[in-house]
Design a protein around this nucleic acid. Structure first.
Length: 706
DNA sequence: ACATGTTAAATTTTT
DNA sequence: TTTAACATGT
């Protein structure tokens, strides 16, 4: 086929990697050096020139996206490829799953072949259930997911970090047993189990090929080791300069470790085709693992560094800038904005929405991230299965939705030990008997009368209602598609992991739609854009305040990943007023690490953005917030009523003074009531009783005149 | 049951 | 800096 043509298009380094004959080979692939191209060419070369069947290859990636890309490019280049030839191609987890389902004796571990794979959320549910049944004492339940994750990776209690004194380790053991009883495996179990069972299997792949090896954790390295027999050859591609997930457990120095373990030959791909040479030169300042990074492109435009007053100002500026770029012919989809923390996206979303700029945010939200749907799911779970007591208690004792009763009372009610009545409980308990006739969303909605259980005053009221309807719609459609009765369909939906795959928000980022992309630096890995804006390059934010040396190095690699996404234009910005407790005013030292000759320093234009306009918008936002709070009662008002006689007298005296001298008074959320000392267009200075003199910027302070 | 003081933690995310 | 769980006191 055309693999020979493909070979001709490669540069000398790439060709050397493809033609390499050694038993084990690690390719140090720099950013933008054609890593995937080499991988595909290698596979085609092995198949066509070396007669290695696809079935004798195991090709491992970390994400489904990468796996799909490889499979697509392969079928595109070689029309003879059959789907079943590629069973050994996929993510670590999916290949592990394939082995467990088809080749390994899972019965030895107490599983049957039709075991289910569960999402972390479902595992958490099982854990919560066990805590309740066994009356375990677990501290910091709100952080249970994270704590479990850490504890699960460990096999004996001694290895566990000295944490809180509670039953966490017992929970881990009970959870393990319970999962076997329910015939379910978590993502972690897939790898752990496959590693335990692989010893006695007869699988012997001829080649193991790995993409992005630098991200491997110890379980994944173990998996590779178990798969690799004497006759198996190894080809791995990765970049030590792009390790940004070591906090998630990926081993540092994977390349080094593999090289020594398998006496691997080390090659490198030094040529970057992506970025202009200015951008590459800046990127070089952040390289830590040696290696030469060479470019082939022209210098291009200088890197722009901008000082912005605050995130809101920046969002306004970017909105203008993007419109300007767009009318100059740059498609929206070639523009990306990166930031360090997820919640930094909000302000851009708000402003872009208002300015009609199409955008997409890379944010993974599941049903459970929407509080009302989380509640509805538990409600349905209990309705379908009245033995699921923990769900029932949750539904009744939730403080935002439902009847909002106390947890202890709810527990009594659910167990039938209370004389009190609950309409919602009765509806749930009678559901199985009375639901048969339900056909439509409306009927299901009305059965429970959801309107009664959402606070009409809540800011999210309309949204909540809509979310519930969307979910019910999906459920009804699901049952119909599967040609099940309503109850069967609902039960199946609740039990299937399809539940968590359902993306109500449809926020999946796609490269094809023409919109500006907003994402964290982490999410930017593997992508490229013509214009990249990295925002909030402040002291304390990029790099994020870190504990040790290793973390700092990872932050540096993260910044490296960020800047190397840019093809033609890179802009860095930092805030004077970052509005985040970790971030401090002033530029990050990373900006100072870039040679000044590469930088075009743009002066701030803060005053150009109309402060009046800002003020108006902030007031509008605040008014909206207050509307939402109204009705739920204002706790501050209550506090003020409680104040003793003395302060009341003081109050009236002050009132008189105000009338005499025309003094203006203001109220502040935190500082209480104060007297205005000085005031001009922009600033306001006030004195507060217990806090002394404070100065505010009018546009941003949440002051109210009295 | 409620009120107040103390303490730890907060980030990045794929399967 | 802010939040919420835990801890202790009435």
């Amino acid at each position: 086929m055309n693999y020979e043509e493909e070979l001709k298009r490669l540069n000398e380094y790439q060709r050397e990697a493809v033609l390499d004959e050694s038993d084990a080979c690690i390719v140090n692939a720099n950013v933008g050096s054609g890593k995937t191209t080499v991988l595909i060419s290698k596979i085609l070369y092995l198949h066509h020139a070396k007669n290695v069947s696809y079935r004798n290859m195991i090709v491992l990636t970390f994400t489904n996206k990468a796996a799909n890309e490889i499979k697509e490019r392969l079928t595109g280049a070689d029309s003879g490829v059959q789907a079943e030839d590629l069973e050994g191609f996929g993510t670590f987890h999916s290949v592990a799953l394939h082995f467990l389902k088809n080749r390994l004796p899972v019965e030895k571990m107490g599983y049957t072949r039709d075991f289910l794979v569960i999402e972390p959320e479902e595992e958490l549910d099982i854990a919560l259930h066990i805590i309740q049944e066994e009356k375990l004492s677990i501290k910091y339940k709100n952080r249970l997911k994270k704590r479990l994750e850490q504890a699960m990776a460990v096999r004996t209690e001694e290895q566990m970090k000295p944490g809180y004194k509670d039953d966490l380790f017992r929970l881990v053991q009970l959870l393990r047993e319970e999962k076997i009883r329910q015939n379910k495996m978590s993502f972690l179990d897939l790898l752990q189990n496959v590693n335990d069972l692989l010893d006695d299997s007869g699988t012997e792949p001829k080649w193991i090929i790995i993409d992005e090896v630098q991200d491997s954790d110890s379980l994944q390295l173990d998996f590779i080791d178990k798969l690799k027999r004497d006759g198996t050859r190894l080809f791995a591609v990765g970049d030590p300069n792009q390790v940004i997930y070591s906090w998630r457990g990926s081993t540092l120095n994977v390349v080094y470790a593999l090289k020594h373990k398998y006496a691997a030959r080390e090659l490198s791909l030094p040529v970057n085709y992506r970025s202009s040479s200015s951008i590459l030169e800046a990127a070089r300042c952040f390289l830590q693992n040696g290696g030469s990074l060479t470019g082939v492109r022209e210098p291009g435009s200088k890197i722009v560094v901008k000082n912005q007053y605050n995130p809101f100002n920046e969002a306004c500026y970017l909105a203008d800038k993007i419109q300007e770029l767009h009318s100059a012919g740059v498609p929206y989809k070639e523009i990306a904005i990166f930031y360090r923390l997820q919640n930094q996206s909000q302000i851009f979303e708000d402003v872009f929405q208002k300015n009609g700029i199409p955008y997409e945010v890379s944010l993974k939200k599941t049903i459970r991230d929407i509080p009302v749907l989380n509640w509805v799911i538990k409600l349905l779970r209990f309705s379908v299965n009245p033995n699921d007591l923990s769900s029932g208690i949750y539904v009744l004792s939730n403080q935002d939705y439902g009847e909002r009763i106390r947890e202890k009372e709810a527990a009594k009610l659910v167990r039938g030990q209370s004389e009190k009545q609950s309409g919602l409980l009765a509806d749930m308990q009678e559901f199985a008997a009375r639901c048969a006739g339900i056909q439509s969303v409306d009927e299901l909605y009305d059965y429970f009368g959801f309107d009664r259980y959402i606070k009409p005053t809540a800011a999210t009221y309309r949204e909540d209602k809509e979310s519930i309807r969307t979910l019910l719609d999906i459920i009804i459609a699901y049952g119909k598609e599967k040609q099940m009765t309503f109850l069967e369909g609902l039960t199946d939906f609740l039990n299937s992991s399809a539940l968590y795959g359902v993306n109500i928000l449809q926020k999946d980022i796609s490269s094809s739609t023409d919109s500006v992309k907003l994402m964290t630096l982490h999410a930017s890995k593997g992508l490229e854009f013509s214009h990249v804006f990295i925002t909030g390059v402040n002291y304390g934010l990029i790099p994020l305040q870190t504990k040790g040396m290793e973390e700092e190095e990872e932050e540096r690699r993260l910044f490296f990943v960020g800047i190397t996404r840019a093809k033609d234009y890179l802009e860095l910005s930092y805030y004077t007023n970052p509005e985040h407790y970790r971030a401090m005013a002033g530029e990050s030292r990373y900006i100072r690490m870039i040679p000044p000759r590469l930088i075009r320093d743009d002066a701030v234009r803060t005053t150009e953005v109309s402060l009046q306009e800002l003020k108006k918008q902030i007031q509008a936002a605040r008014a909206e917030g207050e509307k939402a709070e109204a009705g739920s009662g204002n706790p501050e008002a209550g506090n003020r009523m409680m104040e003793n006689q003395e302060t009341k007298n003081q109050e009236t005296k002050n009132q008189e003074a105000i009338q005499r001298e025309n003094i203006r008074r203001v109220s502040h959320k935190k500082y209480g009531i104060g007297t205005v000392l000085r005031e001009d267009e922009m600033m306001i200075e006030a004195e507060f009783e217990n806090y002394g003199m404070k100065e505010f910027m009018k546009a941003f302070s949440e002051l109210e005149y009295l």
